[in-house]
Structures are given as C-alpha cells and as structure tokens.
Design a protein around this nucleic acid. Structure first.
Lengths: 143, 143
DNA sequence: CTGGAGCTTACCATCATGGCAAGGTCAAGC
DNA sequence: GCTTGACCTTGCCATGATGGTAAGCTCCAG
C-alpha cells in the first residue's frame, strides 16, 4: 500500500500468516486460534480473503503467552498476567502475589507427586521382579 | 432368600448400595458408575428395582482401584494392574516393570514442575512487590 | 493453469471428574 | 395408608489444553 511496501524492509515490520507466527512463537497455529477465541489474543487483522495477519506486537504477545505457559500458568492466569503487563500503573506487588500463589501451588503439586513417587519407589525396591508371582506392590494395593 | 437372610450376619457378607460403597471405598458414586462403564469394575448385582448391589469382593476391588488412583495411575494402568492382580501366575517382574515406568514418569514430572517452581521463585525473590510498577517477573515473561 | 502447501471453520476426542435434571424407590414417621 | 426426604437411576453437559480430521478456499511457483 504505502511507498515502503516491499518485502525487504526490516524484519520488525513484517506481517505474517498464522503458520509463520506459530513457528516464530513456538505455539501451534491451532492454539493461536484457540487463544484468540477465548479472548487471550486480540482478533488479528485479516487479509481480504480471510487469512489472519500477525505483526510484531502480536508476536510479542504470543511469546509472552508462551513463556507463561511454559511456566505452568493456566490460560486464565495468563489473561491476568497480560492485564498486569499492559497496565503501566500496576503495582508490582500484584504480580508478585499472583506468581507467589502459583509457586505455592506448584510446590504442593511437587510434594504430592514426590510422595507418590517415594512410596512407589519403596514398593519397587521391595519387589523381587522375577518370574515368581509374589509381589509386595500388588499386596500393598490390595491393602 | 436363604435361611440366613438376616441383617445381623457378619459385616463381611453385607450387600450395600452404591452410596455406602462410595463411602466405604472413598470413591464417589459417580466414579464407581464410571469405572463400571469403562469396564474397570464388573457389572454389579442389581436389586429388582435396579439399584446396584456391592459385596465385599467388590469393595475390595474398589479399594484397590482407590489405592492405585491415589498413587497416580491412570485408569488404563489400573486396568492392567487389576489384570496382574487377578492373575495368580503373573511374574512379579511384570508388575515391577510397569510400576517402575510409572515412577520414571513421576520423576520426570516432578523435575519439570521443580524447574518451573525454581525459576518462578527466583523471579519472585527479585521482585520488590511494592506499589511501583517495575517488575522483573513481567520483564522476564515479555522476554 | 495446475498442483501442492497453507489457510479457513467446524466438529470430535482425550482424561478424570463434577453437576444437573427428570424420574423411580425406599424407609421412617404420622 | 400416605407423605416426605434421602437415595437411586440414566443421560447429558462441562471442564482445560491440546490434537485430529474433514471440507473447502487461497496463494504461489512452475
């Protein structure tokens, strides 16, 4: 459209289809559409024929989502984090509180899984694991 | 029906409705029905009017399922464990192998969650958490 | 112009669990 | 005997994050 409508301009200004955005963000195209549908992503621009178009700002957002997702946040939590991110006035205490709660949750989950793991490891260690049928593991499950 | 059809016979021979079985096993009535539907539980006896009736053997089975579930096994895995349990000829090595694989999986999950937790704890520790907007947590997510 | 890659929407599946609704049953108390 | 409340039945829908598939449109390179 404008005079610089060339595909040799700096990468930072390039628009891309969903596939490229997916590659660049590490989020599948499927999930990008999903995040749009649940309102985590703004509705992107579209070509005349309906293809989604993502700019650098969208990509930035996608990368944020990806980071948060990789740190175990749910989509609802990511939505709150995005709100805080976009709000220049937020007090950092709010962010800290939210993330601290998530950390507590993770710690609890870890504790639960570790308890299972320890118990099972104990049982495994006590099991001969040969061709005989005697098995303390099953005995324990049968209580 | 038979001569001892009295409700004062030993607890071990008592039949119970699903609610009581649920209480006694710690598995919700809903899930007991579900386990029946997916074939984890045999179809129980029914009263003339259609109420499910559980005996001590069923209860034993439910308790087994509950133990396994609490140790993080999926219903499919529980199905396999039940098969092994019922098969008097199984070699304990089979049980041990299955459970060992589950332990490995749990360990991996714990490692993942711990990595998240450690990273987040680091970020939380680095965040002032006051009324100012500066927040290394969001900075990290925004990358 | 054609073929293949990429895009669109819409629907279905997972897994373990809960909720709800509409209706049948049972036991206790009046 | 009748009412009431607790309990049972089935069936359907929802969760959350993700993948699959199908039918059809678009775009680009050869």
């Amino acid at each position: 459209m404008s005079a610089d409508a060339t595909n040799t301009r700096p990468i930072g200004a390039r628009l891309m289809n969903i596939g490229e955005a997916a590659q660049a963000s590490g989020i599948s195209a499927k999930m990008i559409r999903h995040y749009e549908q649940i309102g985590l992503m703004p509705k992107p621009a579209r070509t005349f024929s309906g293809y989604r178009l993502y700019n650098q700002s969208d990509l930035h957002l996608l990368r944020f989502i990806r980071q948060a997702r990789d740190l175990g946040f749910s989509t609802v939590q990511i939505g709150k984090l995005l709100e805080l991110w976009h709000n220049q006035q937020r007090p950092s205490s709010e962010v800290k509180a939210m993330v601290s709660a998530h950390v507590r949750m993770l710690k609890q989950k870890v504790a639960e899984l570790e308890a299972m793991q320890a118990e099972l490891q104990r049982l495994v260690d006590g099991c001969q694991g040969d061709q005989r049928p005697d098995c303390p593991i099953l005995d324990r499950l049968a209580n």
